[in-house]
Design a binder for these strands. Structure first.
Lengths: 134, 134
DNA sequence: CATGTGCTTTCCCTTTACGTAAACTTACTG
DNA sequence: CAGTAAGTTTACGTAAAGGGAAAGCACATG
């Protein structure tokens, strides 16, 4: 039986929806971040909800500063993990912990830098203030 | 009179101290992030405390994800600001506010992503748990 | 049926932030 | 004085993440 009609979307619409270009989506497939996409009868790529979620996830990780290459090794591990659950999962946990640590570090750095900038800002604002009152 | 002996340092030592390469330091000068460096009689670059601070600041901004090009425009604005204080300072405040906003956004995103990862992690850990108890 | 729109692949181009090698000085050191 | 370590400039190379153009299908539409 034919699958219950999945909502499929074409690359152009998807790109517009995500605010990226079609090139980017094809690029992610090209380097193996996406796995070969299903095609319509005419050969056009089509994406379902899972595919969309995956791309969104990639974009999120990217925004975080994780490189596409790093994502690839993560993806590899997850794929392996699908095959023999027991042995590989601890490794996945390790990787996740490592990334949590990295994220924590980044947050801390950003916060401290934020403070620096705020201080800088108020020093300048004070200067302006004292000037105008003379 | 000769300046009170400033502590000067050569490029190699400085690079090692900062954990970067000499190429990087020369590159920052090359693109105008650093201004032409003073030279020893032999022509070797030498850096004082201010120079070192400046490079450290650059590295900090870089770690934050600000591109060298963005830093250049920031530097431009600050340099202009040194010349006619009154007119340019509001613009500097604007830029700083803008960057504070960006940093806030990044922190928020990272925090939410951190939560995602942590949740993911505990779901996997639970799976492992329930498996081993069967 | 011509035309337009959106898709396809292939291929070369671009930017960022340096790496790296070549060829040459300067300065110390045995 | 020969050697070596650290510096110099010039210039080409590289990895990452796509951009953009060319040439060709597929499908809808006046």
């Amino acid at each position: 039986m034919p699958k219950p009609q999945e909502p499929l979307i074409q690359i152009g619409k998807l790109a517009k929806q995500l605010g990226i270009t079609t090139r980017t989506i094809r690029y992610y497939e090209e380097i193996g971040l996406m796995g070969p996409s299903k095609r319509s009868s005419g050969g056009a790529r089509s994406y379902n909800r899972d595919d969309v979620l995956r791309i969104k996830f990639i974009l999120k990780l990217k925004e975080l500063g994780i490189s596409l290459k790093e994502m690839l090794t993560l993806a590899d591990t997850f794929d392996t993990y699908n095959q023999n659950f027991d042995t590989i999962t601890p490794r996945v946990l390790e990787i996740l912990d490592l990334h949590i640590g990295k994220v924590d570090d980044k947050i801390a750095n950003l916060s401290s830098l934020r403070d620096d900038i705020v201080n800088y800002r108020s020093r300048i604002a004070e200067l302006l203030q004292s000037q105008s009152s003379e």
